[in-house]
Design a binder for these strands. Structure first.
Lengths: 262, 262
DNA sequence: CGCGACTTTGACAGATGTCAAGGCTTGTGG
DNA sequence: CCACAAGCCTTGACATCTGTCAAAGTCGCG
Protein backbone atom coordinates (compact mmCIF):
# COMPACT_ATOMS: atom_id res chain seq x y z
CA UNK A 1 0.00 0.00 0.00
CA UNK A 2 1.29 3.41 -0.92
CA UNK A 3 0.84 6.02 1.75
CA UNK A 4 0.27 9.61 0.83
CA UNK A 5 3.42 11.47 1.37
CA UNK A 6 4.80 14.96 1.27
CA UNK A 7 8.17 16.51 1.65
CA UNK A 8 7.30 19.57 3.62
CA UNK A 9 9.77 22.07 4.87
CA UNK A 10 10.12 21.60 8.58
CA UNK A 11 9.37 24.61 10.69
CA UNK A 12 12.42 25.27 12.77
CA UNK A 13 12.49 27.47 15.78
CA UNK A 14 15.59 29.51 16.47
CA UNK A 15 18.38 27.48 18.06
CA UNK A 16 18.11 27.67 21.81
CA UNK A 17 20.26 26.41 24.58
CA UNK A 18 19.22 23.45 26.63
CA UNK A 19 18.12 25.21 29.75
CA UNK A 20 15.34 26.98 27.96
CA UNK A 21 13.83 23.76 26.76
CA UNK A 22 11.67 21.83 29.16
CA UNK A 23 11.52 19.19 26.45
CA UNK A 24 15.15 18.33 27.04
CA UNK A 25 14.29 17.13 30.50
CA UNK A 26 12.30 14.38 28.80
CA UNK A 27 15.57 13.11 27.44
CA UNK A 28 17.21 13.16 30.84
CA UNK A 29 14.29 11.37 32.41
CA UNK A 30 14.28 8.69 29.78
CA UNK A 31 17.98 8.03 30.10
CA UNK A 32 17.73 7.99 33.86
CA UNK A 33 15.15 5.23 33.55
CA UNK A 34 17.61 3.12 31.64
CA UNK A 35 20.63 3.51 33.86
CA UNK A 36 22.01 5.26 36.86
CA UNK A 37 23.00 8.81 36.08
CA UNK A 38 24.87 11.09 38.44
CA UNK A 39 23.94 14.75 38.83
CA UNK A 40 27.02 15.52 36.85
CA UNK A 41 25.82 13.30 34.02
CA UNK A 42 22.44 14.97 34.05
CA UNK A 43 23.85 18.47 34.00
CA UNK A 44 26.06 17.56 31.09
CA UNK A 45 23.02 16.42 29.14
CA UNK A 46 21.10 19.57 29.96
CA UNK A 47 24.00 21.60 28.62
CA UNK A 48 23.75 19.98 25.18
CA UNK A 49 22.97 22.24 22.26
CA UNK A 50 19.47 21.43 21.14
CA UNK A 51 16.82 22.78 18.89
CA UNK A 52 13.11 22.32 18.98
CA UNK A 53 11.25 21.80 15.75
CA UNK A 54 7.65 21.32 14.76
CA UNK A 55 6.46 18.96 12.09
CA UNK A 56 3.09 18.84 10.45
CA UNK A 57 1.21 15.61 9.98
CA UNK A 58 2.61 13.65 7.04
CA UNK A 59 5.80 15.66 6.83
CA UNK A 60 9.21 14.03 6.80
CA UNK A 61 11.70 14.90 9.50
CA UNK A 62 14.35 12.67 7.94
CA UNK A 63 13.90 11.54 4.38
CA UNK A 64 14.65 7.94 3.58
CA UNK A 65 18.30 7.33 2.63
CA UNK A 66 19.24 10.83 3.68
CA UNK A 67 22.32 10.92 5.92
CA UNK A 68 21.28 11.86 9.39
CA UNK A 69 23.29 14.02 11.72
CA UNK A 70 20.95 14.44 14.66
CA UNK A 71 19.25 12.46 17.31
CA UNK A 72 15.56 13.21 17.78
CA UNK A 73 13.45 13.03 20.90
CA UNK A 74 9.70 13.29 20.60
CA UNK A 75 8.30 16.07 22.75
CA UNK A 76 4.76 15.76 21.47
CA UNK A 77 2.91 13.93 18.75
CA UNK A 78 3.57 10.69 16.94
CA UNK A 79 6.43 9.81 14.61
CA UNK A 80 7.17 6.79 12.44
CA UNK A 81 10.46 5.34 11.31
CA UNK A 82 10.00 3.66 7.96
CA UNK A 83 11.62 2.00 4.99
CA UNK A 84 10.37 2.26 1.49
CA UNK A 85 10.45 0.13 -1.66
CA UNK A 86 10.88 1.51 -5.14
CA UNK A 87 7.20 1.12 -5.95
CA UNK A 88 6.36 3.41 -3.05
CA UNK A 89 5.32 0.61 -0.70
CA UNK A 90 6.36 1.57 2.80
CA UNK A 91 6.94 -0.34 5.94
CA UNK A 92 6.89 1.43 9.25
CA UNK A 93 9.45 -0.22 11.53
CA UNK A 94 8.79 1.79 14.68
CA UNK A 95 6.32 4.23 16.16
CA UNK A 96 7.68 6.86 18.49
CA UNK A 97 5.59 8.58 21.12
CA UNK A 98 6.33 11.28 23.67
CA UNK A 99 9.67 10.73 25.32
CA UNK A 100 10.93 8.23 22.77
CA UNK A 101 14.20 8.67 20.99
CA UNK A 102 13.77 8.18 17.30
CA UNK A 103 16.42 5.76 16.07
CA UNK A 104 18.73 5.47 19.07
CA UNK A 105 21.01 3.25 16.99
CA UNK A 106 21.88 6.02 14.57
CA UNK A 107 24.59 7.23 16.95
CA UNK A 108 26.75 4.20 16.33
CA UNK A 109 26.12 3.85 12.61
CA UNK A 110 27.50 5.81 9.74
CA UNK A 111 24.90 4.55 7.31
CA UNK A 112 21.83 6.59 6.60
CA UNK A 113 19.02 5.37 8.75
CA UNK A 114 15.40 5.01 7.81
CA UNK A 115 13.03 7.84 7.06
CA UNK A 116 11.31 9.56 9.93
CA UNK A 117 7.86 10.99 9.42
CA UNK A 118 5.40 12.79 11.64
CA UNK A 119 2.07 10.99 11.56
CA UNK A 120 0.38 13.71 13.57
CA UNK A 121 1.38 17.30 14.31
CA UNK A 122 4.48 16.90 16.45
CA UNK A 123 7.18 18.74 18.33
CA UNK A 124 10.63 17.23 18.36
CA UNK A 125 13.93 18.14 19.90
CA UNK A 126 17.03 17.67 17.90
CA UNK A 127 20.53 17.10 19.21
CA UNK A 128 23.52 16.96 16.87
CA UNK A 129 25.30 13.61 16.94
CA UNK A 130 28.78 14.97 17.47
CA UNK A 131 28.35 16.70 20.81
CA UNK A 132 26.34 13.72 21.96
CA UNK A 133 29.14 11.35 21.03
CA UNK A 134 31.63 13.56 22.80
CA UNK A 135 29.40 13.44 25.84
CA UNK A 136 29.34 9.66 25.77
CA UNK A 137 33.13 9.59 25.63
CA UNK A 138 33.32 11.60 28.82
CA UNK A 139 30.34 10.02 30.57
CA UNK A 140 30.28 6.27 29.99
CA UNK A 141 27.10 5.88 31.99
CA UNK A 142 25.24 8.02 29.50
CA UNK A 143 26.48 5.68 26.83
CA UNK A 144 25.17 2.73 28.78
CA UNK A 145 21.77 4.37 29.08
CA UNK A 146 21.70 5.03 25.37
CA UNK A 147 22.72 1.45 24.77
CA UNK A 148 19.89 0.21 26.96
CA UNK A 149 17.47 2.51 25.15
CA UNK A 150 18.60 1.07 21.84
CA UNK A 151 18.18 -2.43 23.18
CA UNK A 152 14.65 -1.65 24.33
CA UNK A 153 13.87 -0.32 20.87
CA UNK A 154 15.30 -3.49 19.35
CA UNK A 155 13.16 -5.67 21.62
CA UNK A 156 10.07 -3.93 20.29
CA UNK A 157 11.36 -4.37 16.76
CA UNK A 158 11.80 -8.12 17.29
CA UNK A 159 8.26 -8.41 18.52
CA UNK A 160 6.95 -6.51 15.52
CA UNK A 161 8.75 -8.97 13.31
CA UNK A 162 7.16 -11.88 15.13
CA UNK A 163 3.80 -10.19 14.89
CA UNK A 164 3.93 -9.39 11.21
CA UNK A 165 5.50 -12.71 10.39
CA UNK A 166 3.32 -14.89 12.54
CA UNK A 167 -0.04 -13.33 13.29
CA UNK A 168 -3.07 -12.75 11.10
CA UNK A 169 -4.55 -9.31 10.57
CA UNK A 170 -6.77 -9.29 13.64
CA UNK A 171 -4.11 -10.51 16.05
CA UNK A 172 -1.58 -8.11 14.56
CA UNK A 173 -3.81 -5.11 15.05
CA UNK A 174 -4.74 -6.24 18.54
CA UNK A 175 -1.09 -6.71 19.41
CA UNK A 176 -0.23 -3.22 18.30
CA UNK A 177 -3.03 -1.77 20.40
CA UNK A 178 -1.84 -3.75 23.41
CA UNK A 179 1.69 -2.52 22.96
CA UNK A 180 0.70 1.08 22.48
CA UNK A 181 -1.61 0.97 25.49
CA UNK A 182 1.29 -0.06 27.68
CA UNK A 183 3.69 2.40 26.14
CA UNK A 184 1.27 5.31 26.49
CA UNK A 185 0.62 4.33 30.06
CA UNK A 186 4.35 4.26 30.74
CA UNK A 187 4.56 7.74 29.26
CA UNK A 188 1.88 8.86 31.68
CA UNK A 189 -0.79 9.17 28.99
CA UNK A 190 -3.72 6.84 28.94
CA UNK A 191 -4.25 3.40 30.41
CA UNK A 192 -5.51 -0.05 29.54
CA UNK A 193 -8.92 1.56 29.22
CA UNK A 194 -7.93 3.85 26.44
CA UNK A 195 -5.44 6.26 25.02
CA UNK A 196 -4.99 8.90 22.36
CA UNK A 197 -3.44 7.35 19.29
CA UNK A 198 -3.60 9.79 16.40
CA UNK A 199 -2.87 7.44 13.52
CA UNK A 200 -4.86 6.95 10.34
CA UNK A 201 -5.92 3.56 9.04
CA UNK A 202 -3.61 4.12 6.13
CA UNK A 203 -0.60 4.47 8.42
CA UNK A 204 -1.76 1.58 10.57
CA UNK A 205 -1.62 -0.45 7.38
CA UNK A 206 1.93 0.71 6.73
CA UNK A 207 2.91 -0.39 10.21
CA UNK A 208 1.13 -3.75 10.16
CA UNK A 209 1.77 -4.60 6.55
CA UNK A 210 -1.91 -4.57 5.68
CA UNK A 211 -3.89 -2.62 3.13
CA UNK A 212 -5.97 0.29 4.35
CA UNK A 213 -9.10 -1.57 3.38
CA UNK A 214 -8.14 -4.60 5.35
CA UNK A 215 -7.27 -2.52 8.40
CA UNK A 216 -10.73 -1.10 8.20
CA UNK A 217 -12.38 -4.51 7.94
CA UNK A 218 -10.33 -5.84 10.81
CA UNK A 219 -11.10 -2.85 12.99
CA UNK A 220 -14.76 -3.45 12.34
CA UNK A 221 -14.41 -7.02 13.56
CA UNK A 222 -12.78 -5.90 16.80
CA UNK A 223 -15.50 -3.31 17.23
CA UNK A 224 -18.31 -5.78 16.55
CA UNK A 225 -16.85 -8.16 19.08
CA UNK A 226 -16.90 -5.43 21.70
CA UNK A 227 -13.16 -5.46 22.18
CA UNK A 228 -12.09 -1.98 21.14
CA UNK A 229 -13.76 1.10 19.86
CA UNK A 230 -11.72 3.57 17.84
CA UNK A 231 -12.67 7.03 16.80
CA UNK A 232 -11.23 10.45 16.41
CA UNK A 233 -7.69 9.39 17.06
CA UNK A 234 -8.56 7.72 20.36
CA UNK A 235 -8.62 4.04 21.19
CA UNK A 236 -11.16 2.83 23.74
CA UNK A 237 -10.36 -0.55 25.09
CA UNK A 238 -13.62 -2.20 26.13
CA UNK A 239 -12.20 -5.61 26.92
CA UNK A 240 -8.51 -5.56 27.79
CA UNK A 241 -8.30 -9.24 28.51
CA UNK A 242 -10.09 -10.09 25.29
CA UNK A 243 -7.70 -7.85 23.41
CA UNK A 244 -4.67 -9.52 24.97
CA UNK A 245 -6.09 -12.95 24.20
CA UNK A 246 -6.68 -12.15 20.56
CA UNK A 247 -3.15 -10.77 20.35
CA UNK A 248 -1.42 -13.44 22.44
CA UNK A 249 0.09 -10.43 24.15
CA UNK A 250 2.70 -10.64 26.87
CA UNK A 251 3.90 -7.28 28.07
CA UNK A 252 7.20 -8.54 29.48
CA UNK A 253 9.25 -7.14 26.59
CA UNK A 254 8.07 -3.64 27.38
CA UNK A 255 9.03 -3.64 31.02
CA UNK A 256 11.65 -1.12 31.91
CA UNK A 257 14.39 -2.90 33.76
CA UNK A 258 16.51 -0.97 36.17
CA UNK A 259 20.08 -0.72 35.08
CA UNK A 260 21.91 -4.00 34.95
CA UNK A 261 25.28 -2.61 34.12
CA UNK A 262 26.05 0.54 36.01
CA UNK B 1 4.19 -23.26 9.46
CA UNK B 2 5.22 -25.44 12.31
CA UNK B 3 8.83 -26.50 12.31
CA UNK B 4 9.91 -29.81 13.71
CA UNK B 5 11.42 -29.23 17.03
CA UNK B 6 13.25 -31.05 19.74
CA UNK B 7 14.45 -30.22 23.18
CA UNK B 8 17.73 -32.02 23.19
CA UNK B 9 20.17 -31.97 26.02
CA UNK B 10 23.07 -29.81 25.00
CA UNK B 11 26.43 -31.48 25.06
CA UNK B 12 28.60 -29.42 27.31
CA UNK B 13 32.34 -29.65 27.42
CA UNK B 14 34.06 -29.20 30.75
CA UNK B 15 34.39 -25.54 31.75
CA UNK B 16 37.66 -24.20 30.48
CA UNK B 17 39.40 -20.95 30.97
CA UNK B 18 39.54 -18.46 28.17
CA UNK B 19 43.08 -18.94 27.11
CA UNK B 20 42.46 -22.48 26.02
CA UNK B 21 39.71 -21.42 23.66
CA UNK B 22 40.70 -20.11 20.28
CA UNK B 23 36.99 -19.46 19.77
CA UNK B 24 37.12 -16.66 22.31
CA UNK B 25 39.39 -14.72 20.03
CA UNK B 26 36.44 -14.52 17.64
CA UNK B 27 34.69 -12.46 20.26
CA UNK B 28 37.65 -10.14 20.66
CA UNK B 29 37.96 -9.70 16.92
CA UNK B 30 34.31 -8.92 16.53
CA UNK B 31 34.32 -6.32 19.29
CA UNK B 32 37.50 -4.79 17.93
CA UNK B 33 35.70 -4.29 14.63
CA UNK B 34 33.04 -2.28 16.36
CA UNK B 35 35.20 0.00 18.44
CA UNK B 36 38.72 0.77 19.46
CA UNK B 37 39.94 -1.62 22.11
CA UNK B 38 43.19 -1.26 23.99
CA UNK B 39 45.43 -4.24 24.68
CA UNK B 40 44.26 -4.02 28.22
CA UNK B 41 40.63 -4.28 27.08
CA UNK B 42 41.46 -7.28 24.94
CA UNK B 43 43.31 -9.11 27.67
CA UNK B 44 40.42 -8.55 30.01
CA UNK B 45 38.09 -10.17 27.52
CA UNK B 46 40.40 -13.14 27.03
CA UNK B 47 40.40 -13.66 30.77
CA UNK B 48 36.64 -14.12 30.87
CA UNK B 49 35.34 -17.45 32.07
CA UNK B 50 33.87 -19.22 29.08
CA UNK B 51 32.60 -22.59 28.12
CA UNK B 52 32.34 -24.19 24.73
CA UNK B 53 29.27 -26.21 23.88
CA UNK B 54 28.10 -28.20 20.92
CA UNK B 55 24.56 -28.29 19.65
CA UNK B 56 23.01 -30.70 17.22
CA UNK B 57 20.87 -29.56 14.35
CA UNK B 58 17.37 -28.68 15.55
CA UNK B 59 18.32 -28.55 19.20
CA UNK B 60 17.52 -25.57 21.40
CA UNK B 61 20.33 -23.70 23.08
CA UNK B 62 17.90 -21.36 24.82
CA UNK B 63 14.26 -22.33 25.00
CA UNK B 64 11.69 -19.66 24.29
CA UNK B 65 10.68 -17.72 27.41
CA UNK B 66 13.45 -19.30 29.44
CA UNK B 67 15.46 -16.75 31.39
CA UNK B 68 18.88 -16.46 29.90
CA UNK B 69 22.04 -15.92 31.86
CA UNK B 70 24.69 -16.18 29.20
CA UNK B 71 25.88 -14.47 26.10
CA UNK B 72 26.57 -16.78 23.17
CA UNK B 73 29.07 -16.39 20.37
CA UNK B 74 28.86 -18.71 17.39
CA UNK B 75 32.13 -20.54 16.79
CA UNK B 76 30.81 -22.72 14.03
CA UNK B 77 27.48 -23.59 12.45
CA UNK B 78 24.24 -21.66 12.14
CA UNK B 79 21.86 -20.54 14.86
CA UNK B 80 18.45 -18.91 14.82
CA UNK B 81 16.80 -16.60 17.31
CA UNK B 82 13.05 -17.10 17.18
CA UNK B 83 9.71 -16.33 18.70
CA UNK B 84 6.82 -18.71 18.80
CA UNK B 85 3.04 -18.50 18.87
CA UNK B 86 0.82 -20.80 20.87
CA UNK B 87 -0.16 -22.81 17.82
CA UNK B 88 3.49 -23.66 17.23
CA UNK B 89 3.99 -21.15 14.45
CA UNK B 90 7.50 -19.77 14.72
CA UNK B 91 9.16 -16.68 13.44
CA UNK B 92 12.91 -16.55 13.19
CA UNK B 93 14.02 -13.00 13.95
CA UNK B 94 17.74 -13.43 13.35
CA UNK B 95 20.21 -15.85 11.87
CA UNK B 96 23.63 -16.01 13.50
CA UNK B 97 26.72 -17.23 11.69
CA UNK B 98 30.33 -17.69 12.75
CA UNK B 99 31.52 -14.80 14.84
CA UNK B 100 28.06 -13.42 15.57
CA UNK B 101 26.85 -12.78 19.05
CA UNK B 102 23.46 -14.26 19.59
CA UNK B 103 21.20 -11.64 21.13
CA UNK B 104 23.65 -8.90 22.09
CA UNK B 105 20.76 -7.00 23.66
CA UNK B 106 20.19 -9.61 26.33
CA UNK B 107 22.91 -8.03 28.45
CA UNK B 108 20.84 -4.94 29.16
CA UNK B 109 17.48 -6.67 29.55
CA UNK B 110 16.13 -8.63 32.44
CA UNK B 111 13.32 -10.14 30.41
CA UNK B 112 13.74 -13.56 28.91
CA UNK B 113 14.88 -13.23 25.37
CA UNK B 114 13.80 -15.29 22.41
CA UNK B 115 14.58 -18.92 21.85
CA UNK B 116 17.88 -19.84 20.28
CA UNK B 117 18.10 -22.93 18.14
CA UNK B 118 20.91 -24.55 16.18
CA UNK B 119 19.79 -25.04 12.58
CA UNK B 120 22.89 -27.03 11.75
CA UNK B 121 25.45 -28.78 13.95
CA UNK B 122 27.14 -25.91 15.78
CA UNK B 123 29.76 -25.02 18.29
CA UNK B 124 29.07 -22.06 20.56
CA UNK B 125 30.93 -20.30 23.30
CA UNK B 126 29.07 -19.19 26.32
CA UNK B 127 29.94 -16.35 28.66
CA UNK B 128 27.96 -15.68 31.82
CA UNK B 129 26.30 -12.27 31.85
CA UNK B 130 27.54 -11.18 35.24
CA UNK B 131 31.29 -11.20 34.65
CA UNK B 132 30.64 -9.59 31.29
CA UNK B 133 28.66 -6.79 32.92
CA UNK B 134 31.40 -6.31 35.46
CA UNK B 135 33.86 -6.07 32.61
CA UNK B 136 31.79 -3.38 30.94
CA UNK B 137 31.73 -1.39 34.16
CA UNK B 138 35.52 -1.35 34.25
CA UNK B 139 36.08 -1.01 30.50
CA UNK B 140 33.59 1.42 28.99
CA UNK B 141 35.03 0.90 25.52
CA UNK B 142 34.01 -2.73 25.61
CA UNK B 143 30.52 -1.56 26.45
CA UNK B 144 30.58 0.75 23.48
CA UNK B 145 31.62 -2.10 21.21
CA UNK B 146 28.82 -4.24 22.54
CA UNK B 147 26.45 -1.36 22.02
CA UNK B 148 27.59 -1.01 18.41
CA UNK B 149 27.20 -4.74 17.91
CA UNK B 150 23.66 -4.56 19.22
CA UNK B 151 22.94 -1.65 16.92
CA UNK B 152 24.24 -3.59 13.93
CA UNK B 153 21.99 -6.47 14.88
CA UNK B 154 19.06 -4.09 15.17
CA UNK B 155 19.78 -2.64 11.73
CA UNK B 156 19.50 -6.13 10.26
CA UNK B 157 16.31 -6.67 12.21
CA UNK B 158 14.80 -3.49 10.79
CA UNK B 159 15.59 -4.61 7.29
CA UNK B 160 14.02 -7.99 7.91
CA UNK B 161 10.89 -6.22 9.01
CA UNK B 162 10.87 -4.14 5.86
CA UNK B 163 11.47 -7.25 3.82
CA UNK B 164 8.77 -9.37 5.37
CA UNK B 165 6.37 -6.47 5.49
CA UNK B 166 7.00 -5.13 2.04
CA UNK B 167 8.37 -7.71 -0.37
CA UNK B 168 6.74 -10.69 -2.04
CA UNK B 169 8.08 -14.20 -1.62
CA UNK B 170 10.63 -14.02 -4.41
CA UNK B 171 12.10 -10.71 -3.40
CA UNK B 172 12.16 -11.77 0.25
CA UNK B 173 14.10 -14.90 -0.48
CA UNK B 174 16.46 -13.05 -2.80
CA UNK B 175 17.03 -10.40 -0.16
CA UNK B 176 17.94 -12.97 2.43
CA UNK B 177 20.43 -14.58 0.06
CA UNK B 178 21.97 -11.19 -0.69
CA UNK B 179 22.31 -10.41 2.98
CA UNK B 180 23.78 -13.76 3.87
CA UNK B 181 26.23 -13.60 0.95
CA UNK B 182 27.62 -10.34 2.31
CA UNK B 183 27.67 -11.54 5.88
CA UNK B 184 29.45 -14.78 5.00
CA UNK B 185 31.94 -12.84 2.95
CA UNK B 186 32.56 -10.53 5.90
CA UNK B 187 33.14 -13.60 8.03
CA UNK B 188 35.74 -14.77 5.52
CA UNK B 189 33.54 -17.58 4.21
CA UNK B 190 32.21 -17.47 0.69
CA UNK B 191 31.62 -14.60 -1.69
CA UNK B 192 29.03 -13.13 -4.01
CA UNK B 193 29.52 -16.25 -6.12
CA UNK B 194 28.40 -18.60 -3.45
CA UNK B 195 28.52 -19.66 0.16
CA UNK B 196 27.68 -22.52 2.47
CA UNK B 197 24.30 -21.92 4.02
CA UNK B 198 23.12 -25.04 5.83
CA UNK B 199 19.46 -24.22 6.26
CA UNK B 200 16.45 -26.31 5.30
CA UNK B 201 13.54 -24.95 3.30
CA UNK B 202 11.42 -25.43 6.38
CA UNK B 203 13.61 -23.10 8.41
CA UNK B 204 13.88 -20.67 5.52
CA UNK B 205 10.12 -20.51 5.70
CA UNK B 206 10.25 -19.76 9.41
CA UNK B 207 12.65 -16.92 8.73
CA UNK B 208 10.80 -15.43 5.77
CA UNK B 209 7.30 -16.05 7.02
CA UNK B 210 6.48 -18.40 4.15
CA UNK B 211 5.28 -21.98 4.09
CA UNK B 212 7.82 -24.65 3.23
CA UNK B 213 5.93 -25.38 0.05
CA UNK B 214 6.03 -21.80 -1.05
CA UNK B 215 9.74 -21.52 -0.29
CA UNK B 216 10.23 -24.49 -2.56
CA UNK B 217 8.18 -22.98 -5.38
CA UNK B 218 9.98 -19.67 -5.07
CA UNK B 219 13.38 -21.30 -5.05
CA UNK B 220 12.42 -23.08 -8.23
CA UNK B 221 11.58 -19.77 -9.85
CA UNK B 222 14.95 -18.30 -8.95
CA UNK B 223 16.62 -21.43 -10.25
CA UNK B 224 14.67 -21.42 -13.52
CA UNK B 225 15.60 -17.81 -14.08
CA UNK B 226 19.26 -18.68 -13.70
CA UNK B 227 19.74 -16.46 -10.68
CA UNK B 228 20.72 -18.87 -7.94
CA UNK B 229 21.22 -22.57 -7.63
CA UNK B 230 20.87 -24.16 -4.22
CA UNK B 231 21.79 -27.65 -3.20
CA UNK B 232 23.32 -29.55 -0.39
CA UNK B 233 23.38 -26.62 1.95
CA UNK B 234 25.27 -24.42 -0.49
CA UNK B 235 24.03 -21.40 -2.38
CA UNK B 236 25.50 -20.76 -5.83
CA UNK B 237 24.87 -17.27 -7.03
CA UNK B 238 24.80 -17.36 -10.82
CA UNK B 239 23.72 -13.76 -11.34
CA UNK B 240 24.57 -11.49 -8.45
CA UNK B 241 23.24 -8.37 -10.09
CA UNK B 242 20.04 -10.12 -11.04
CA UNK B 243 19.66 -11.31 -7.47
CA UNK B 244 20.18 -7.81 -6.09
CA UNK B 245 17.67 -6.40 -8.57
CA UNK B 246 14.99 -8.89 -7.63
CA UNK B 247 15.62 -8.11 -3.97
CA UNK B 248 16.04 -4.34 -4.29
CA UNK B 249 19.11 -4.98 -2.20
CA UNK B 250 21.38 -2.25 -0.88
CA UNK B 251 24.20 -3.55 1.25
CA UNK B 252 24.81 -0.27 3.09
CA UNK B 253 23.14 -1.46 6.28
CA UNK B 254 25.64 -4.28 6.59
CA UNK B 255 28.76 -2.21 6.32
CA UNK B 256 30.91 -2.24 9.39
CA UNK B 257 31.62 1.31 10.37
CA UNK B 258 34.73 2.07 12.32
CA UNK B 259 34.01 3.34 15.78
CA UNK B 260 32.22 6.62 15.92
CA UNK B 261 32.34 7.04 19.65
CA UNK B 262 35.63 5.99 21.11
C1' DC C 1 -20.91 25.52 3.42
C1' DG C 2 -17.70 23.20 0.62
C1' DC C 3 -13.44 20.90 -0.02
C1' DG C 4 -10.06 17.43 1.20
C1' DA C 5 -8.84 13.80 3.92
C1' DC C 6 -10.32 9.93 6.08
C1' DT C 7 -13.53 5.91 6.62
C1' DT C 8 -16.57 2.38 5.06
C1' DT C 9 -18.39 -1.10 1.98
C1' DG C 10 -18.90 -4.50 -1.91
C1' DA C 11 -17.15 -7.28 -5.68
C1' DC C 12 -13.51 -9.45 -7.47
C1' DA C 13 -8.46 -10.94 -8.03
C1' DG C 14 -4.18 -12.79 -6.66
C1' DA C 15 -0.57 -14.42 -3.60
C1' DT C 16 0.31 -17.68 -0.45
C1' DG C 17 -1.21 -21.50 2.72
C1' DT C 18 -2.78 -26.34 3.34
C1' DC C 19 -3.12 -31.03 2.30
C1' DA C 20 -1.52 -35.05 0.31
C1' DA C 21 1.51 -37.98 -2.07
C1' DG C 22 5.70 -39.45 -4.10
C1' DG C 23 10.77 -39.08 -4.99
C1' DC C 24 15.37 -38.19 -3.48
C1' DT C 25 19.51 -38.14 -0.23
C1' DT C 26 21.97 -39.35 3.43
C1' DG C 27 23.42 -41.82 7.31
C1' DT C 28 23.35 -46.14 9.73
C1' DG C 29 23.36 -50.91 10.79
C1' DG C 30 23.40 -55.56 9.25
C1' DC D 1 28.24 -53.12 0.26
C1' DC D 2 23.35 -53.17 0.47
C1' DA D 3 18.93 -52.00 2.49
C1' DC D 4 16.26 -49.37 5.28
C1' DA D 5 14.62 -45.32 7.64
C1' DA D 6 14.24 -40.55 8.40
C1' DG D 7 14.39 -36.31 6.90
C1' DC D 8 14.15 -33.39 3.15
C1' DC D 9 12.60 -31.84 -1.41
C1' DT D 10 9.17 -31.50 -5.11
C1' DT D 11 4.72 -31.21 -7.17
C1' DG D 12 -0.38 -30.74 -7.93
C1' DA D 13 -5.00 -29.43 -6.51
C1' DC D 14 -7.56 -26.70 -3.88
C1' DA D 15 -8.66 -23.23 -0.02
C1' DT D 16 -8.23 -18.81 2.19
C1' DC D 17 -6.54 -14.55 3.55
C1' DT D 18 -5.56 -10.26 2.08
C1' DG D 19 -5.03 -6.94 -1.79
C1' DT D 20 -7.10 -4.00 -5.45
C1' DC D 21 -10.45 -1.22 -7.42
C1' DA D 22 -14.25 1.69 -7.23
C1' DA D 23 -17.71 4.38 -5.14
C1' DA D 24 -20.20 6.49 -1.50
C1' DG D 25 -20.43 8.25 3.18
C1' DT D 26 -18.52 11.07 7.06
C1' DC D 27 -15.87 14.36 9.43
C1' DG D 28 -13.33 18.49 10.30
C1' DC D 29 -11.48 22.73 8.90
C1' DG D 30 -10.99 27.05 6.33
Amino acid sequence: MVGSHEFLPIERGPPRIGKSLPALSLFVERLALRGLLSDDDKEAIIALPVQEISARANSDVIRPAEPNTHMYVVADGLLARYGQMKDGQRQIVALHIVGDMADPDALTARQPSFGLQALAPSRIIRIPHEPLRALVRRHPRIGQSLWAEGAADAAILSHWLVSIGGRNAKARLAHLYCEMAIRYRQAGLGSSFGFEFPITQNHLGDALSLSTVHVNRTLKELRNEGIVDVHGGAVNVLDWKGLCDVAEFDSAYLEVSPSLIA
